[in-house]
Design a protein around this nucleic acid. Structure first.
Lengths: 151, 151
DNA sequence: TATTGTTATACTCTATAACTATA
DNA sequence: TATAGTTATAGAGTATAACAATA
C-alpha cells in the first residue's frame, strides 16, 4: 500500500486555484472578443514601444510558429502592426496600433477591475504572504526546469 | 496617474507559478503519448469504477462536446471503453480498460515522481502553509464565480 | 419538456519541420 | 553557419448550436 506523496495536495490545490482564476478571467477575455493568447499578446505589448516576435514569444510562452498566426489575426483586426526592425533586416517589431492601444487602455483596466471584484472576498492582509508563498514555489519549479534541461 | 491594484502582483505570481508547473508537467505528459486533456481524463478515471461523461466533464472542466472527442481518441487507443448506464438509457459509463488501468498504474506514479523531483528544492515545511494559502485564494475566486453566474 | 450525449461547424492553438532571407 | 520569421502539415481542443434518444 502506497502513501500519497506529501506534495500532491499542494500541486492539486495550485491547479485548482489556477483553474478557478481562469474561469473568472477567460470568460471576461472572450467577452472582449479576444482569445486568451491574443489577450496575452495585447497585454504584453501594452505600455511598450513594441518588440520583436522572439521577445514576444518568450514573454507569452507562445512558440514562434504559433505566434505568427496569433499576430496575423491581431493584425487583421487592426490591433497590431509589423514594422521592419531597423537594426536587423531579418527582424521586425510588433507593436500596438492606435486602435490596439485604445483597446488596451479600455480593456485592460476593465479586466483588472473584473478580477478585483472576484477577489473582493479575499483578505487583503493575505495578499503579500500568499504571493511570497507562490514565489518560493515557483523558484523551486523553475530551478528544476533548468536542471532538467541540462540533464 | 493610476496606482497598480494591490492584488495584481499576486495574480501574476499565480499565473507564473502555474506556468512553471505546466512546463514541468506537460512535457512529461506528452512524453507518455497523452495530451494534457487525455491525461486528465485517465487520471480522473484511475481508481474509480468509471463514471458518466457528465461527471467526467465536471471533474476535468472539459465541456461535453469536446469530451466526446477526447474519449473517442482514448477509446481508439484502447485505454477507455464506453458501457451503457444500466440506470439511465440515455447515459453511459466511461471507464478504463485493463490496458488503460495498466497505463494509469505505470504512468501516474511516474508522473508523480517526476513532479516530486521538480519539487525537491522546495522546503517541505512550507507545503502545508502554501497549500492553505492557495486554498483561501481559491475559495474567494470560486465564491466570486458563483456570485457572477447569478448576476 | 428537460436532459444525455453525439454530431457538425468553424476557429484557434499546438508541435514540428522545412524553408527564406538575412547576418 | 546561425538566426529571424514564415509557411506547411497534421492533430487536438474550444465554443456553440442543432439533433436524437430517453426520462
Amino acid at each position: 500500500m502506497k502513501t500519497t506523496p506529501p506534495f500532491l495536495p499542494l500541486v492539486r490545490e495550485l491547479v485548482r486555484t489556477y483553474q478557478a482564476f481562469e474561469r473568472v478571467s477567460a470568460g471576461h477575455v472572450r467577452s472582449m472578443g479576444l482569445t486568451p493568447a491574443q489577450f496575452d499578446v495585447v497585454a504584453t505589448l501594452g505600455n511598450t514601444q513594441g518588440m520583436n516576435p522572439k521577445q514576444l514569444g518568450e514573454k507569452t510562452l507562445i512558440t514562434k510558429g504559433t505566434l505568427t498566426g496569433v499576430v496575423d489575426r491581431l493584425a487583421e483586426k487592426g490591433l497590431v502592426q509589423r514594422l521592419p526592425d531597423p537594426r536587423d533586416g531579418r527582424g521586425q517589431i510588433v507593436r500596438l496600433t492606435a486602435q490596439g492601444q485604445a483597446l488596451f487602455e479600455t480593456v485592460f483596466p476593465a479586466h483588472v477591475a473584473h478580477i478585483g471584484r472576484a477577489l473582493a472576498g479575499f483578505d487583503s492582509a493575505r495578499l503579500g504572504p500568499t504571493q511570497q508563498a507562490l514565489h518560493l514555489l515557483r523558484q523551486a519549479l523553475e530551478q528544476a526546469g533548468g536542471a532538467e534541461a541540462e540533464a
